[in-house]
């Protein structure tokens, strides 16, 4: 091969190298992800006792009359399900056991929040304080009326 051809090959190779796109494709890699949101329900009585064996009905936003899923809480009052993320909106979960229970509304999709609660969520101290206030109000009323009656008798 003459010097002329060697020069042509070198220039052509250089042009090819310089002309390559910056993006490099190695072995074919396909990366996918799916967003599975697992929702855990914890159902307890206001005493803290778990709703062991309570029935659970889950309603999807597109059909609030037919349960999308039914189940039962475990012995710790836990129930876990994965909502269909193609149905964004408010998912309703009804829990019931022996006439006790409630409903919780869980937003799924853009408005999803990490945690939520359907109960009052009072601490033990708050409950004691509220009970004491109401009790004192009732007893105070009784004492007030009683003192007025005594005062009238003395007069």
């Amino acid at each position: 091969m003459g010097r002329k051809w060697k020069l042509v090959i070198c220039i052509t190779s250089l042009l090819i190298i310089l002309g390559l796109p910056t993006e490099v494709h190695a072995h074919g890699v396909v990366i996918k992800y799916t967003s599975d949101i697992e929702i855990e329900i914890v159902a307890t009585y206001d005493t803290g006792e778990p709703m062991d064996g309570a029935q659970v009905l889950v309603y999807a936003p597109d059909d609030p009359s037919t349960p999308w899923l039914t189940g039962v809480c475990d012995d710790k009052g836990h129930f876990t399900f994965t909502p269909d993320t193609s149905k964004p909106g408010i998912w309703d979960v009804k829990i019931r056991q022996a006439g006790h229970g409630g409903i919780i509304h869980i937003p799924v999709g853009e408005d999803a929040v990490a945690t939520g609660s359907s109960g009052g969520g009072y601490s033990g101290l708050q409950i004691v304080l509220m009970a004491a206030c109401v009790t004192w109000g009732i007893i105070g009323t009784a004492l007030y009326l009683s003192s007025r009656k005594t005062a009238r008798k003395r007069a």
């Binding site: 005493t47 006792e49 409950i127 009326l145």
Partner: peptide
Amino acid sequence: IPKASLLTAAFFVASWIHIPVPPTS
């Protein structure tokens, strides 16, 4: 009324006194 008020308070508080009767209370 004083007697009724006192027992209303007792009724109000009594619902927080739980007696465990397995498997419930």
